[in-house]
Amino acid sequence: MSTTAPHGGESPLLLQFRHGLRRDQFDKAIRDIRDGWARRELWMTLAFQDIRRRYRRSKLGPFWITISMGIMVMALGLLYGQIFRQDLHEYLPFLAAGFVIWGLVSTMIIDGCEAFIVSDGMIRQLNAPISIYAYKCIWSNLIIFAHNIWIFFGVALWYGIDLNWNLLWVPVALLVLVANGLWMSLFFGLLSARFRDVPLIIGSVVQVFFFITPVIWHPAMLPDRALLLDLNPFYHMVEIVRAPMLGQPPGLEHWLAVLLLGLVGWAVTLFFYSAYRWRIAYWV
């Protein structure tokens, strides 16, 4: 092995880009995502195993997720219900729904950053499509969500909230969220594999968004609808799932915002994924 300076006058970045933007690289990126889906038995198993490992040898197993989320929702609900002088009959289901969805959205992004980094050993030894690590990340978050959602149903039943036909929108909205989560995982996972401070940056950004997104507070509490709210993608992502959970009809603007986010996100991701996908194995 010999070490040389970067090729001629051209920066390696430019060379990589030129290599990555060829038509066949785009086809390969698409194939990678498609073949990754075909290996779902593998990543579903890996995701499941990840969660089991986290709660190994504890009697309640993954239901610890449910319990800790339940305690969190109760504590926050009682406290903020007092602070905001809210009627718990409405506030607690609202908070439980928002919190559970927030958990899904935020961890899809945060774990997504680590999707490739934590699987470095496998990436360098296994000739599988690299997208399986993004799928795996999304799937394990869905499993956790499936544990958490019971908190909401518990609270909803307790307060006798009206669960109506609008509930049927929930799975559709979740599907759209997951489609967004997948591009985020691919995109931020790729970026993090190259720049190791990205997970830290994303982590703090997401934390800020937790406070400026109406999860513990109601959008109606804001005096007039601020731009801050409409430009916040997290608000729309939370809202498309939360509204039908609380029995409200889906809001068109939120759906449009999330679909737009998905469209733009996937376009940007496909661009970067076809340019740099082949480099991930070198970076991790």
Binding site: S2, A5, P6, P12
Partner: peptide, 8 residues
């Protein structure tokens, strides 16, 4: 700070 390259 330029990135060096190893020709493997």
């Amino acid at each position: 700070q330029r990135i060096s390259v190893v020709e493997a």
